[in-house]
Amino acid sequence: MCLAIPGKLVELSNENGLKMGIVDVNGSKTRACLEYVPEIQLGQYTIVHAGFALKIIDEEDAAESLKLWQELIESGAFQPDEPDREPPTFESL
């Protein structure tokens, strides 16, 4: 359920008394209602569902979790116990 895609706020506007904006996803832009993220600033990322921004993406948390995972990879903490399995082939499925 609930496709919600992260995009960057690139324009602010007001329509019929509602705080609205344009959110850019990889160069394609969509109009979104910003009433639920009143503190959002231009340049911030938000997830958009059904034309509504629902949450400003927590950049700190995102960077932290990615860093954590990256460190785990680099430190070799994620070591497979068994040799890499060959990816399944069509017949074996």
């Binding site: 639920y36 993220v37 009143p38 997830i47 629902l54 949450k55 993406i57 927590d58 995102a62 979790s65």
Partner: peptide, 12 residues
């Protein structure tokens, strides 16, 4: 964590 908090979106 980048999208979900314990209390969620209170305005919504």
């Amino acid at each position: 964590g980048r999208v979900v908090s314990r209390e969620g979106n209170l305005v919504a």
